[in-house]
């Protein structure tokens, strides 16, 4: 449908794509949009390539994003950014964690991890990147790297910082609110 925003969150199972998509869906809903989120559960979550979709607009039918139709891809890992890059629209934006996690075929020497992924993608689409895992480690918890990347994405979206904070507070586990907000800030201010 026209006017619908299509966002994909891609990464490696366990990196927090699900939580991120729920925060994104939450802020879109707060702003009065019709929202659909499509998640991945089960076996694919176990260290595999994962993708979740968030679509919002006046009315949204399809819950998934297809090739050539994503306005934004939020990628938690470089190889996953490349894997899904053809889903971006011509004027789409890639927000990426400049971080490498070798998949099993690379670890056992059956395949090679591509070099210069983000540099090459920059020649085709707008790319904003941050080493979110290092930033999260500085905060003492590498698991919040997803919020660092989300913070960078938020910088290029239209919602207010206060609204982001409010949705984060309502979405993440209560004990982790402070570290998640700090991670969001690290990305937002990068």
């Amino acid at each position: 449908m026209n006017g619908t925003k299509s966002i994909m969150i891609v990464g490696v199972g366990g990196q927090g794509t699900l939580l991120t998509s729920r925060i994104l869906g939450g802020i879109a809903m707060e702003n009065g949009f019709d929202v659909k989120i499509s998640e991945v559960h089960g076996m694919s979550q176990r260290g595999g390539s994962v993708v979740t979709y968030v679509r919002y607009g006046e009315t949204v039918a399809e819950p998934i994003v297809e090739e050539g139709q994503a306005d934004v891809i939020i990628a938690f890992e470089r190889l996953e950014a490349l894997r899904y890059s053809h889903f971006l629209k011509k004027d789409g934006v890639l927000i990426a964690n400049d971080w490498r996690i070798d998949p099993m075929p690379v670890l056992i020497g059956a395949a090679e991890y591509p070099e210069q992924i983000l540099e090459n993608l920059e020649k085709q689409v707008k790319v904003y990147s941050v080493n979110a895992t290092e930033e999260a480690k500085k905060l003492g918890n590498s698991r919040v790297s997803n919020l660092v990347v989300l913070g960078l994405a938020a910088k290029h979206m239209d919602f207010s910082k206060e609204q982001w904070y409010s949705v984060i507070e309502h979405t993440v586990p209560p004990k982790t609110i402070d570290v998640n907000k700090a991670a969001f800030d690290a990305g937002y201010c990068s």
Partner: peptide, 17 residues
């Protein structure tokens, strides 16, 4: 809808944690 061809990248199958 037109889209670029997918990049050739190594698979990332699910694995034991």
């Amino acid at each position: 809808v037109e889209a670029k061809a997918p990049a050739e990248v190594p698979n990332r199958p699910p694995i034991l944690c």
